[in-house]
Simulated scan of single mutants.
Amino acid sequence: MAELYADKQIKLFSLTSNRDIAEKIAQVAGIPLGKVSSRQFSDGEIMINIEETVRGDDIYIIQSTSFPVNDNLWELLIMIDACKRASANTVNVVIPYFGYSRQDRIAASREPITAKLVANMLVKAGVDRVLTLDLHAVQVQGFFDIPVDNLFTVPLFAEYYIDLGLVGEDVVVVSPKNSGIKRARSLAEHLNAPIAIIDYAQDDSHREEGYIIGEVKGKKAIIIDDILNTGRTFAEAAKILERGGATDIFAVASHGLFAGSAADILEASPIQEIIVTDSVLSKERVPENVKYLSASQLIADAIIRIHERKPLSPLFSYHSDQEG
């Protein structure tokens, strides 16, 4: 397949945040990863060296802006600049996990909208297109003045649970906070299952006071969220569901950050299995009950469709048997 794209001037490059998913994307697409080196000087400055020509090529740079988010973001910006100065035809960035996307609005006085700032930086650096996976807030697409394609992982998760037989009225899809209702309803529609919501007497910082809206007693519960960070939201939701009579508890998230003591918190919870994509290569210990589903096939298909100027709409009902 590499020969098929050789005359179309497409090149993939991986930076350092998540080499694993980049290699999988390259393998699926049949396009070898380009040669690039990245290093830091003793004071932390980043130096990029592209070790092959990119003149006239359509470049796709794969980089999650996960921990350490600022290093990874700056590495991406510097690589973009290097490609532009080397006369690349287009520079497209593939960001499986888009850091700072949670800072998408002013929630309190004098707060920044950092997601918009990051968008401005990427556009100013010279990006022609952004391809990402499950943005925390879809409105972040509107922060850019260039095309942004936001792929969804719910169909990938749905296929996994359908294969396990977790479908129908015996299953309930649970949003662990009221802001995630749309995501929960999307998975529930795929599984022909009802939804439930965990709400809080005050706000979600008082998770011990959570209560369930919906029926979970005697059902198998699937908690769904986009970002699994400290693990506290999932763990507390699972405890509330256990008290509510759920028989089995599963959890799924698009991005597994597993920050700090998340592994300990989640392993102490009643969650039987946690599913995440490989969008983030966590630097922390990952819980033993975590299983990865690879998003590489989905992202590779999107890259090829973009390059061939084909619509991405077929990918929004995506089917794959690829696993990480």
Rank of each mutant, 00 (worst) to 15 (best):
E75T: 00
P32E: 09
V174T: 10
Q139A: 08
K35G: 08
D225K: 02
M79G: 04
D264T: 14
V94K: 02
I48F: 02
K177I: 06
Q103E: 11
I213L: 15
I265A: 05
S179T: 14
I113Q: 07
R309K: 15
K217Q: 09
I78K: 09
S279D: 04
V252S: 08
I249K: 01
F316R: 12
A193I: 13
E208W: 11
T277G: 04
C83L: 13
T114Y: 07
P287V: 07
I61P: 04
V154D: 02
I46K: 09
R19A: 03
A26R: 02
F157Y: 15
K177W: 08
I146C: 04
I10G: 03
A268S: 15
G256Y: 05
Q141R: 12
Q272M: 13
L312H: 12
A137W: 10
D278G: 13
I265Q: 03
N49R: 15
E215Y: 11
G260I: 00
T277Q: 02
N229W: 05
I265H: 04
G260V: 00
E323K: 13
D163S: 15
A88N: 02
A119V: 06
H136Q: 14
Y97C: 00
T277Y: 03
I222K: 05
Q27W: 06
A119N: 06
N18P: 08
K124F: 12
